[in-house]
């Protein structure tokens, strides 16, 4: 059985070709500084692997130590409803020290979102449930910190900060 208990499906946010042979799944938290440090590394991996890679981000907000993480995750889901998921994802990580409500509204404005609709969606309990829906699958898949990465369904146990990460991905089958 692969480590990743819930396989990637169309309910995930997927960046890259569905036919890509290398699948990288990150369980992450927008307020976590380690996830912030992983963000440019993932960008570089995406640049280097191009169409061979599909990247999936699943929310794993650690709400007690990162009180703004859940709202940020909900904001990304709200942006997704207006077709701007990855734009908001990038905006949140690039500004992860400012994730209060007014900052998030500013980011939505900057992305040209319909703000009235965005505010309603951010307050929607169902969207909050969606933002939390990956948490249990993460726990059961062995997520024990943020970020945790899975490569083609298997948990990556080595140091994702090391250059070996991209070499490992290149050889993934």
């Amino acid at each position: 059985m692969p480590d990743l208990r819930i396989p990637v499906s169309d309910r995930d946010h997927i960046l890259g070709s569905p036919d890509a042979t290398i699948e990288l799944v990150e369980y992450g938290d927008y307020q976590c500084p380690y996830c912030g440090a992983a963000y440019p590394i993932v960008k570089r991996i995406q640049d280097e692997l191009g169409s061979r890679l599909k990247f999936v981000f699943r929310n794993f907000p650690l709400r007690k130590i990162h009180p703004q993480a859940l709202m940020a995750a909900v904001a990304s889901e709200a942006a997704s409803l207006q077709g701007k998921y990855w734009e908001m994802h990038d905006m949140l990580f690039e500004n992860q020290k400012r994730l209060n409500y007014s900052s998030i509204i500013n980011y939505a404005e900057h992305l040209g979102l319909d703000i009235i609709r965005f505010k309603l969606d951010v307050a929607d309990i169902n969207l909050e449930k969606k933002a939390l829906s990956d948490f249990e699958s993460g726990l059961r898949s062995g997520v024990n910190a943020t970020p945790t990465f899975f490569v083609n369904g298997n948990k990556y146990l080595q140091d994702w900060k090391a250059p070996e990460f991209i070499q490992f991905l290149e050889q993934a089958k």
Binding site: C32, P33, Y34, L62, R63, K64, I65, F135, E136, L139, N144, A145, T146
Partner: peptide, 16 residues
């Protein structure tokens, strides 16, 4: 250290 701490992690998931 906080981000890798087992007890801090369990605290996040007591509901489960």
């Amino acid at each position: 250290p906080v981000c890798s701490d087992q007890m801090t992690f369990y605290n996040e998931m007591l509901d489960y």
